[in-house]
Simulated assay, not measured.
Amino acid sequence: MQDFHVHSNYSDGSFLRGMVRAAESAGLEGLGFADHCNVGARERMAEMRRAYGFNLDLTYERRRQAIDRLRADTSLDLYDAVEMDYHPADEGEIRSFLASAGFDYAIGSVHQVDGTNVQVASQFVDRLPAERDRIVETYYDRLVSLVESELFDIAAHVDLLERTTPLRGRATDEQYHRVADAFARSRTIPEINAGRALTDEEIVHPETQFFEILREHDVPFTLGTDAHRPFEVENRAEFLAEFVERYDLEPTVPPALEE
Rank of each mutant, 00 (worst) to 15 (best):
M1D: 08
Q2C: 06
V6C: 12
H7W: 06
S8G: 13
S11F: 04
D12M: 07
V20T: 11
V20Y: 14
A22L: 01
A23R: 00
E24D: 02
A26N: 06
A26M: 07
G27Q: 07
L28N: 11
E29G: 11
G30K: 04
G30R: 08
L31W: 08
D35W: 01
H36Y: 10
C37T: 04
N38T: 13
V39H: 00
G40H: 10
G40V: 12
R42H: 13
R42G: 09
R44K: 15
R44N: 13
A46N: 09
A46Y: 06
A51E: 13
T59L: 15
R62K: 15
Q65Y: 14
A66M: 06
I67M: 05
D68S: 09
L70S: 02
R71N: 08
R71T: 07
L76C: 07
V82L: 05
E83I: 00
E93N: 02
I94H: 05
I94G: 01
R95Y: 02
A99L: 05
F103V: 02
D104E: 03
A106V: 12
V110E: 01
H111T: 03
T116M: 09
T116W: 12
T116F: 13
N117G: 05
V118N: 13
Q123P: 11
Q123T: 12
R134M: 15
R134Q: 14
I135P: 00
E137T: 15
Y139E: 10
D141P: 01
V144P: 14
L146T: 11
E148Y: 10
E150V: 03
L151S: 09
F152T: 04
A155L: 09
H157S: 03
L161T: 01
P166V: 03
L167V: 06
R168E: 02
A171E: 14
A171G: 14
T172L: 01
D173F: 10
E174S: 14
Y176H: 11
R178T: 03
A180K: 01
D181L: 11
R187Q: 12
T188Q: 10
P190Q: 13
I192H: 01
I192V: 14
G195P: 08
L198W: 10
I203T: 07
H205W: 08
H205A: 03
T208E: 15
E212I: 14
I213T: 10
L214I: 00
L214Y: 02
E216C: 02
H217L: 03
D218Y: 15
G224R: 10
D226V: 11
A227E: 00
R229V: 10
R229K: 10
F231W: 10
E234Y: 08
E234D: 09
R236M: 12
A237R: 09
A237G: 05
E238M: 14
E238K: 15
F239A: 12
L240W: 09
F243K: 13
V244C: 07
L249A: 07
P254M: 09
P255R: 02
A256K: 02
L257R: 02
E259A: 13
